[in-house]
């Protein structure tokens, strides 16, 4: 089977609306195809084993990382015909990221949600979104009375809106839960997942009080034309099936001084992001001067995500 032929198949498969059964049959054929291809070309044999025995992120040397990134980039090139660049920006000393979101200004347009999916290469089919925008009843802070599947014009007179994403908790239950340390908090506060170390037990997902984690039950798919080529190893690189992922405050952007994609997409300026340790940062100003509300504060997670009024 020629390489091109397979790629065409692949591209077709990611077109939205492919039925689940059809996709699964196609996958089955792909598995067969891949198996025969591997059997035919013996020099390709090394890669799966290298991947299988790849160590935890924190145990990798710079040399290891270079090799792994190159391998991953080549895989994307092969599979999607897209040239991507995988980087590994390091946390910056003296920086602790935090988010503040203005509940009074948010109109519930969900632009952050879709911008996030684009930036972070989350699967389009099945559709995966890190951000959930809750339509809340006026007069209540109880998320249990919210609606996430609202449609039509926003905002309505009876509702206000509360977007929820990973809160990058200081005492993160997800980190504690993971049996293999595949998820941890970086020094700048961002909780990341090593997609090659996660065994897919989903205990972290059960532990998270913010419904912030997402699992790849199926092979994630993104159209080649929609792949964001600027990728972080611990953030938005293309994920394999069977692993956990989540919002990383766009660390591949924010560690380079850019703002998260969700903030840039917000038409109302409801989102403020920055360095909590810098007294002049906007997010610090918000916390010091506004009325701040923390979701599920009773869960004891100490999040780095604040809602405010005003």
């Amino acid at each position: 089977m020629s390489e091109d032929h397979q790629n065409d198949d692949e591209r077709e498969a990611v077109v939205e609306g492919v039925g689940k059964a059809q996709a699964s049959r196609r996958r089955f054929l792909q598995v067969l195809g891949a198996a025969t291809a591997t059997a035919a070309t013996s020099q390709a044999d090394a890669a799966p084993w290298e991947e299988y025995f790849q160590q935890h992120y924190k145990r990798l040397t710079d040399e290891d990382k270079r090799e792994i990134f190159a391998r991953l980039e080549a895989e994307v090139q092969d599979k999607y015909g897209v040239a991507v660049h995988i980087s590994d920006p390091k946390p910056i000393d003296g920086v602790e990221f935090a988010y503040a979101l203005n509940l009074q200004a948010c109109v519930g347009c969900r632009r952050c949600e879709y911008a996030c999916a684009q930036e972070n290469n989350t699967s389009r089919s099945p559709e995966m979104h890190y951000i959930r925008v809750l339509q809340m009843d006026k007069g209540s802070l109880d998320v249990e009375r919210s609606n996430t599947t609202y449609e039509g014009a926003v905002p309505t007179a009876e509702h206000y809106y509360q977007p929820v994403q990973c809160h990058q908790c200081r005492d993160a239950p997800c980190v504690r839960a993971c049996p293999v340390n595949a998820t941890w908090a970086e020094p700048d506060g961002i909780v990341v997942v090593d997609y090659n170390w996660c065994i897919g037990c989903r205990y972290c997902e059960a532990a998270c009080p913010y419904f912030a984690r997402r699992f790849n039950y199926e092979e994630p798919t993104v159209r080649p034309s929609e792949i964001n080529p600027d990728q972080g190893y611990l953030s938005n690189r293309l994920r394999p099936r069977g692993v956990m992922e989540k919002c990383t405050y766009c660390l591949h952007r924010t560690r380079k001084g850019l703002m998260p994609a969700c903030l840039e997409a917000c038409p109302t300026g409801s989102r403020k992001f920055g360095n909590l340790l810098d007294p002049n940062s906007e997010v610090r100003q918000v916390i010091e001067t506004k009325r701040v509300y923390i979701l599920h504060e009773d869960a004891g997670t100490n999040p780095r995500f604040y809602y405010y009024f005003g």
Binding site: Y52, H56, R176, A177, C178, P179, V180, N181, A182, W197, C198, I199, G200, C201, R202, Y203, F215, N216, Y217, R241, G242, V243, M244
Partner: peptide, 27 residues
Amino acid sequence: VDLGHPELFWHLLPMLGILNFPQSMLA
């Protein structure tokens, strides 16, 4: 059978992998 990657069970083995003990109740 509940794992997304049962073939990576070696990640649980102390030394070879990392067993997050005693923090993780699953460990």
